[in-house]
Computed example of a mutant assay.
Amino acid sequence: MRSVILTVLLLSVIGLPGYSYGGKVLVTMRKIGHEVLLSSGDSTSWVSPIEELDDRTFLIRFQHPFAFQPASLVEIIHRHLQEKQGGLDYLVEVREEKLNTVAYSYEVHHPLNRKEIACLTRKPPRGAYTIKIQFAQPPVQTASVDHTVWLTGLLLTVLLMGIGWRLVYRKPLTSTPVGQAAPLNLVHLGPFTFCLEQQILRLGADRIELSAKESKLLKVFATSPNAVIDRDRLMEQVWGEEGVIVGRSLDVFVSRLRKKLQPAPMVRIVNSHGRGYKLEIDSPKGPGQED
């Protein structure tokens, strides 16, 4: 049985044709936002950190209101996506955030047929827009197998063989107690159990889904419970790889995380004015302790 499991894991890695460039999708989205602002005559305001709503949906936010020309928008988005994502179909929605309405939308089925896209020559008014791009399937770019990919596959094989060995012997998942600086795998936060890999919180039989950013943020808090963590450290560890960091995004995701922690009031995120945030976890009261 053990040899069968290891053989399957080995073949699954050797058969990989390439690898995913998930991080490059975020770079592509930022380039789209940058070029959309330039086409509107804005060369100074920021494109906020790209939000990955799920594995095929991305949201581009902007610092200031702007105006756009639909024909230019369609050309910019398709040029970047055609170059990086090949023949994937996708849906674009331009939303007016203050009015909570869709100001403009269209869908592309390759090859692009501009005659099927309405209102290309009309110009919507200036507004606080966001651009949501949703792919028909998760965007993945593959590369031909070379020595680098072969070596990566070999390393993954060794890793998966180790995982298979553990599965055969049914060793339990290691758990990192709160307060230790060991690598996070499964962490207990009061009554919660946090699994970073699966991006979930468990509270008894309840399962609370977390986004990728929420998971990264909670991971930073979990490494230093009951201690104030500076805003700069939080933003750097969660958004640092994206290059541009906007403080408002931190407050938004802290607010979202707070709501997901509400079922257990003894675990909460509190604000330290002028410094940052702290994950507070109340210790359970022992027998004979008073409130």
Rank of each mutant, 00 (worst) to 15 (best):
F62D: 05
L6I: 11
R95Y: 00
S255T: 08
Y277S: 05
G288W: 05
V74F: 06
V168M: 08
R207W: 08
R256A: 00
Y19F: 15
L26F: 06
E35K: 09
R166M: 07
E290W: 13
M161K: 09
R79G: 09
P138T: 00
A227R: 13
G276Q: 01
V178I: 08
G286C: 05
V270L: 11
L203H: 13
I133Q: 02
G286L: 10
R79L: 10
I77R: 01
D89M: 06
F62Q: 03
R268N: 06
W239V: 00
M266H: 13
Q69W: 11
L81G: 09
D42Y: 02
A181P: 07
G86S: 14
E241D: 12
Y19W: 15
Q180P: 07
A205C: 12
L279T: 07
V74R: 03
F253N: 09
V238D: 00
P125F: 07
R166Q: 12
E116K: 15
R248E: 01
S211M: 02
L234K: 03
K285D: 09
L279M: 06
R2G: 13
F221R: 03
K219I: 03
I131L: 09
L210P: 11
L201I: 08
L189Y: 03
S211R: 01
N100I: 05
G190E: 04
T157P: 11
D230T: 05
W150C: 10
G86K: 12
I229T: 01
G179S: 05
S283M: 13
V187L: 04
E52F: 03
I32S: 02
L9S: 08
P183F: 03
L59P: 01
K84Y: 11
T223N: 13
N100T: 03
E241K: 06
E75T: 15
Y104F: 11
I200F: 11
G41D: 07
H78G: 08
V27W: 09
Q69E: 13
K278T: 12
S249T: 01
E290V: 10
T57F: 01
H273E: 12
R122K: 15
M235A: 10
V254H: 05
N113M: 12
I163L: 11
L156D: 01
D206M: 11
F66H: 03
R248K: 10
S175M: 07
L26E: 02
C195M: 15
V74W: 00
A143K: 10
K98F: 09
P111E: 06
Q199C: 07
I117C: 09
Y106E: 01
P111R: 08
H147N: 14
V178T: 08
L160N: 09
E209Q: 15
M235V: 02
Y106F: 15
L279G: 02
P225N: 05
A227L: 11
N113S: 14
Y106T: 04
C119L: 14
G240W: 00
I208P: 04
G15L: 13
S144Y: 09
Q237P: 06
L217K: 01
Q63M: 09
Q289D: 14
L99I: 04
T44D: 11
I77L: 08
E97W: 04
I208W: 01
H109T: 15
